[in-house]
Simulated assay, not measured.
Amino acid sequence: MNKKGICLGMIIQKIIYNLCCLGRVIPAGTDRDLSLHHPENHYPGNHYPENHHPKIQYEVELNQYGKIVDERIQWLISQYQYVDIHNYVVMPNHLHLILEIDSQKVKAQNVRIKSLSSQMGAMKTTSSNKIHEAGFIDFAWHRSFHDHIIRDEKAYINIFNYELI
């Protein structure tokens, strides 16, 4: 921990998966589209698609499969006592997750800390099994994921806030 209170030694990961069919984006108010960070950058000349309005706020409505993924993210915390989830959002076709692996939580115990890849593999396997049991037989995760180590407080705040959009 440095003098400003930033714990630079902890590993915080941002995970992005590309997947399908976990819910839908629905209008909820004004100003922000959850599916795009800066919609004006994605629609040159502000030519928005027919079903998008730049002044309407959108939110994600998870379907039964999205709710399974949501539950499996919570399962990570209960399954691995050294895992903290700082923030996450399940989107219709991907998810964002800030996950911290804190070895200090199990320092006094004889616990083998699983790698981030092992933890994500466990979440993907268990959620796939439950989604298949729920009737979506063709559901499959993409093979890998994108991770990023958050190295300072400014990056953490930016990523944390981005996931609230």
Rank of each mutant, 00 (worst) to 15 (best):
N41K: 15
H42K: 06
Y43C: 11
Y43F: 15
Y43K: 07
Y43L: 04
P44T: 09
G45Y: 12
G45C: 07
Y48A: 04
Y48F: 15
P49H: 08
P49K: 09
P49N: 10
E50S: 14
H52Q: 12
H53S: 11
H53I: 10
K55C: 05
K55F: 07
K55D: 15
Q57L: 08
Q57F: 09
Y58A: 03
E59N: 07
E59F: 00
E59Q: 14
V60F: 10
V60L: 07
E61C: 13
N63E: 09
N63V: 14
N63D: 12
Y65S: 06
Y65E: 09
Y65N: 08
Y65H: 13
G66Y: 06
G66T: 07
I68T: 05
V69A: 05
D70Q: 15
E71H: 05
W75D: 04
W75S: 03
W75I: 01
I77N: 03
Q79A: 13
Y80T: 07
Q81F: 02
Q81A: 06
V83E: 02
D84C: 08
D84R: 06
I85F: 00
H86K: 06
V89P: 02
V89K: 06
V90H: 06
P92G: 12
N93V: 11
H94G: 10
H94A: 09
L95H: 03
L97A: 04
L97M: 14
L97S: 00
I98K: 00
I98P: 01
L99R: 01
I101Y: 02
D102P: 06
D102V: 09
S103P: 10
K105Q: 13
K107N: 10
Q109W: 05
N110P: 00
V111N: 06
V111W: 02
R112I: 14
I113A: 05
I113F: 03
I113R: 03
I113L: 13
K114A: 08
K114L: 12
S115T: 15
S115I: 11
L116T: 15
L116S: 12
S117T: 14
S117P: 05
S118M: 09
S118H: 13
S118W: 00
Q119C: 10
M120P: 01
M120S: 02
G121H: 08
G121N: 13
A122V: 04
A122P: 00
K124L: 11
T125H: 05
N129I: 11
N129P: 00
K130Q: 15
K130D: 12
